[in-house]
Design a protein around this nucleic acid. Structure first.
Lengths: 161, 161
DNA sequence: CTCTTAAGTTCAGAATCCGTACTCACTGTG
DNA sequence: CACAGTGAGTACGGATTCTGAACTTAAGAG
């Protein structure tokens, strides 16, 4: 649909889903328990027009599914799919960044509480050593699917980094 | 600038930075070591016009800084700021999601190697218990900055989730 | 001189976005 | 039955934004 989908870059793929205006907020609302078209439109203040289009794209991308909750008249609601629920931690990581660097006046608007019982701010870690992941503790190598193309010349070419 | 900036939601704040078309890819390229305007334009295939505008916004948002690397003629390059480097793990989390759910043909285009020496896929965890964070292991509560407004009615109102 | 490089800016046209108003299929009320 | 109401969208048009190509400015190189 958009040109990002054609790039050989997983960030571009994810961006295709998450980096359209409104999409991350729609996903957040679905995660928080909203399901109905009108509720989403009301909560976000998005035009119904655009909401319908975004939900269509999110559905096509496989992160949202449309479920009939009543026949006669037929009515739908929207749920996150497994892929959709899997993107939630990434949104929380973004939220944590927003809290650190662009806190709205009054402090963080939301608190996350983990199943261990404590409020927390999500941290990105390496599953092998458990150490934290930041810009300096990681190096990026071309993977099996690396192919020269728009958005991937950097990776495909050698690194003078 | 855009309306997201006014929402009392840290996801919206982060989205204002990261969820504009091209912005995540620009940040990725800067992280990978590209610094020059022409290199970015060439790598991404973005119009120079829009690249200039995006770099301007990213600079205004404080994630990118413009550095003079030579006088006569004066030439600039772009670096990630501390806030910019801090958003990198969030991008990696998105990348990992893209790898899981929308792998480009041929496999992942990039591999991440942690400072512990092993290739890894980033995981989001709770800093207190070290347990992993997913959609089911977290509950969301209104925080100190929660205020009813567009994009935050859900949080401000009670949860029937 | 003329050519090249870096870093943009300007412009017209195409593609999106977004708000308002409308539709469609029913349901419940009198 | 007629009529207002609700949920889930479409239709339409003006306002933005994006694209691609050409132009600019300020050097240094041949």
């Amino acid at each position: 649909m958009n040109r990002f989908a054609e790039m050989h870059c997983s960030i571009a793929q994810a961006a295709g889903v998450v980096a359209e205006p409104w999409s991350p907020l729609i996903l957040r609302d679905l995660y928080l328990g909203l399901r109905r078209f009108d509720d989403l439109a009301r909560d976000l203040g998005i035009s119904r027009n655009l909401l319908a289009q975004r939900l269509g794209r999110l559905t096509a991308a496989g992160v949202v599914e449309k479920v009939v909750y009543q026949e006669r008249p037929v009515r739908h609601e929207y749920h996150l799919t497994e892929a959709g629920r899997d993107i939630v931690p990434a949104l929380m990581t973004l939220m944590a960044w927003g809290d650190r660097w662009a806190t709205p006046p009054g402090g963080p608007p939301a608190l996350l509480v983990h199943s261990c019982g404590r409020p927390f701010s999500p941290v990105v870690t390496c599953p092998h050593c458990g150490g934290s992941v930041d810009a300096d503790s990681v190096s990026v190598l071309p993977g099996p699917g690396a192919a020269p193309g728009p958005g991937t010349w950097v990776l495909a070419g050698a690194q003078e980094v």
